[in-house]
Write a protein that binds this DNA or RNA. Structure first.
Lengths: 108, 108
DNA sequence: TTCTTCTATCGTAAAATAACGATGGAAGAT
DNA sequence: ATCTTCCATCGTTATTTTACGATAGAAGAA
């Protein structure tokens, strides 16, 4: 994952409300509409919708029109890829100085 | 790690320049001052200093005054804790629906 | 002392973010 | 056809972020 994409995802996750939204989405067996999420949070519906858009734009969640409501669900593979990318980034970060300064290598 | 702290760190890392700064810091065996970093990036010194402040405020890097210059280094343990926190967050996310919807469990 | 170097900080400007209320249009329900 | 529900979007406001140049003060060099 390129830095541009990785940092976009990091930013999209960089808000406590959005971390919570993902929890709410994942905790439900059935898929979830904006109102369901708004009921769990003390925020206006428009604010929640905006947060959903950030997650949507980052490709972390998907929207599916179902009747009068829009259902959201987490893109599991995208989240997994994010986890992998973070680990890879940190791993590479750690590996570079390992060649120069062996004492750092053991920290990771 | 609490959501507040985790999201702060995610935001601090959510900029390509800051991802790169950490790479620069880690790639050097000797520690690194603001000018060294500025030389590697096509940005003004004040801008780099600001990015360093963001990383500093998030506790990701440390500053050490050494003579006329300030040396920066990465807080390895903080970074490692961040990696752990991200993994834990994603892991817990994945575990919740595993109880409700077994098909999701295998994705993680 | 004087000069240079380094860099955090200030001031500024532009853009993005976060929150809200209001609204309009789409889709079921009556 | 009318009513209700859902919700993305618009407009607004306040705050934060990102970038820059300018500057001042600290520390070493001449």
């Amino acid at each position: 994952m390129e830095d541009e994409q990785l940092s976009l995802t990091l930013r999209a996750l960089g808000h406590p409300v959005r971390l919570e939204i993902l929890r709410i989405l994942m905790a439900r067996a059935d898929s979830c509409c904006c109102n369901d999420i708004t009921d769990c949070l003390s925020l206006a519906q428009s604010t929640v919708s905006q947060h959903l858009k950030v997650l949507l734009d980052a490709g972390i969640i998907e929207r599916e029109a179902r009747g009068t409501r829009n259902n959201y669900c987490v893109c599991i593979d995208r989240l997994a890829a994010f986890g992998t990318a973070v680990t890879a980034y940190l791993d590479k970060l750690g590996r570079v100085p390992a060649a120069c300064n062996p004492t750092l290598a053991s920290t990771f």
